[in-house]
Amino acid sequence: MTTMASFIYSWRFTFMFMAIMVRTVFAMPIYRPSPWAQAYATFYGDETASETMGGACGFGNLITNGYGTDTAALSSTLFNNGFACGTCYQIRCTRAKQCYNTFTTVTATNLCPPNWSKDSNAGGWCNPPRVHFDMSKPAFMKIADWKAGIVPVYYRRVPCIRNGGVRFSFQGNGYWLLVYVMNIGGGGDIASMWVKGSKTGWISMSHNWGASYQAFATLGGQSLSFKMTSYTSKETIIAWDAAPPNWQVGLTYKANINFH
């Protein structure tokens, strides 16, 4: 092959490779903001946000697990049986004199349960089919005077911006693996999840509650990989060898990959 022919061949190969890469990047599912919609917002707890720790999603200590105090409990209409855990929302107060001219972004970490003893417009704020955010007090104070108690808001789903990869908090025992999935980027949610031991194929995990998924399998002594599909964007990612062979219940393991 002549020098000129080699150059043309090399150039064509480089061009084809770059074209493939461009198509791959642009084909990648990316979660985008939703249209603005109307709802109402209240707050619970005090300025320390200590009462927001834990919650129905199972995220535990929201400070140490990276969610901070900008969080909210969702009415069951939004909570979607826990599939909305980890989703992110921009919220701004509107049509009330106590509103501030600003907005904040919160992560869904809890459920605001119905209160059937009260009317939906007089205390039963989270009764279906109402769309309601019961925010942490620090988050509420960014959009309105806390003395207002309840304010009308505009909200929209937005991509979750997370530092680092997905985190897996292990519970269960030698025959039952329960995993709380945290720090999810993109849509912030999980629809389906699988686990693979270094000596097994892919094992489907069932949704337990909140942000937890379970597998009834003996996986001790194996490195574990996880395959996850986003509920919203349908993007699927694989966290290879996210946990080492000597993984333990009670510990949290970090992957090097996240949703977009």
Rank of each mutant, 00 (worst) to 15 (best):
G54W: 05
M18T: 14
D46S: 14
A96C: 11
V166Y: 06
P33V: 05
A27F: 09
T48G: 05
H207E: 01
F79W: 13
V181E: 06
A41R: 02
V153P: 06
W209S: 10
H207V: 01
Y44F: 11
V181D: 06
P245I: 13
G60D: 02
R32K: 08
T104K: 11
I161S: 05
M141I: 00
H207L: 03
I257S: 07
T24L: 13
S6L: 15
M4C: 08
E47Y: 08
G201C: 02
L224F: 02
T52Q: 14
S6E: 14
G60T: 00
R23D: 14
G60M: 05
T94V: 15
F226Y: 10
Y155W: 12
C93V: 08
I237A: 15
S10L: 14
S206F: 14
T14P: 02
G124R: 00
L178I: 05
L74H: 07
A239W: 04
P35T: 00
I8G: 12
V181W: 10
N163S: 06
T77G: 12
Y31V: 00
P128M: 00
G164K: 01
M205T: 03
I190F: 11
W116K: 13
W176H: 13
N101F: 09
W146I: 03
T42M: 00
E51S: 09
E235G: 02
A255C: 13
W11A: 15
D145C: 02
N163G: 09
M228Q: 02
P29M: 07
W125E: 02
I150K: 05
M193F: 09
T64K: 14
S206I: 04
K234C: 07
T48A: 09
R12C: 12
P29S: 07
K137Y: 06
I8N: 13
M21D: 01
I237Q: 12
C85H: 05
K254P: 14
V153L: 08
